[in-house]
Every structure is written in C-alpha cells, then in structure tokens.
C-alpha cells in the first residue's frame, strides 16, 4: 500500500481541481460538479486517515458525507432547473440578482 502522504497529495490535487473548476468555469452545472469533486477529495482524506490510524470513523463519516452530497445534488439541480426556466441560461455571470 502506498504511504499516507501519497493519498493526501492525491486528495489535495483533487481539491485543487475542484477549486479551479468553481472559479474558472461559468456553467453552473460544471460548478456543482466541481463542488462534488471537492467533497470527494475530503472523503479520500477521511478514509486515508482512518485507515492509517486503525479507525473506522473515517469510513462512517464518508457514508454520511455521501448522503449529504446526494441531498445537495438533488436540491442544487432543482435550483439549476428553476434558474434556467426563468433566465434561459446557466451562466453564473448572469446570476447577479437576488430575485429571479
């Protein structure tokens, strides 16, 4: 098995890619996907630490994070559909008003 540092570096790179996606991309669906990437980077760190500390808590927390991510994806995509219906666009640059 690879050492802990390697797993953490993969996790850090994954998180960095997620941050880059949120900042650089303008399509709101890709932004939501980048948030999912960041959640998964945190999951990888949780499981790596749990494995190297002989603990199951990491895996349990990842289980809960997955449930939260599923709920977040459902509600987030519903909001995306709502925005598209009102503005005919999914460009985050055009979402500059609090009212639709």
């Amino acid at each position: 098995m690879a050492p802990l540092e390697h797993y953490l570096i993969v996790s850090a790179l994954l998180f960095t890619i997620g941050v880059m996606g949120v900042i650089v991309r303008r399509n709101v669906i890709v932004v939501v996907m980048s948030i999912e990437i960041m959640l998964n980077a945190a999951n990888l760190a949780f499981i790596s630490f749990g494995r190297f500390l002989d603990s199951m808590d990491g895996q349990l927390i990842v289980f809960f994070v997955m449930a939260v991510a599923a709920a977040e994806a459902a509600v987030g995509l519903a909001i995306v559909i709502l925005i598209y219906r009102n503005r005919e666009s999914t460009d985050v640059d055009e979402m500059n008003l609090l009212k639709l």
Partner: peptide, 28 residues
C-alpha cells in the same frame, strides 16, 4: 488561486505532525 490552495495543503501534508491522533481499535 487554486495553486495557492494546493501549496497551503501541501505545507500541512509535509509537516511532521500529520499522524499524531490516538490509534483506533480497528486495524485493517
């Protein structure tokens, strides 16, 4: 900005005190 985030995380990973928590009761 993303690379700055990566550099910050890398700084933490490379420090010596990364794995100091108490051992659990579930080895692999």
């Amino acid at each position: 900005a993303a690379l700055a985030v990566f550099a910050t995380i890398l700084k933490v990973i490379e420090s010596d005190s990364i794995l100091t928590g108490a051992r659990g009761i579930y080895p692999a």
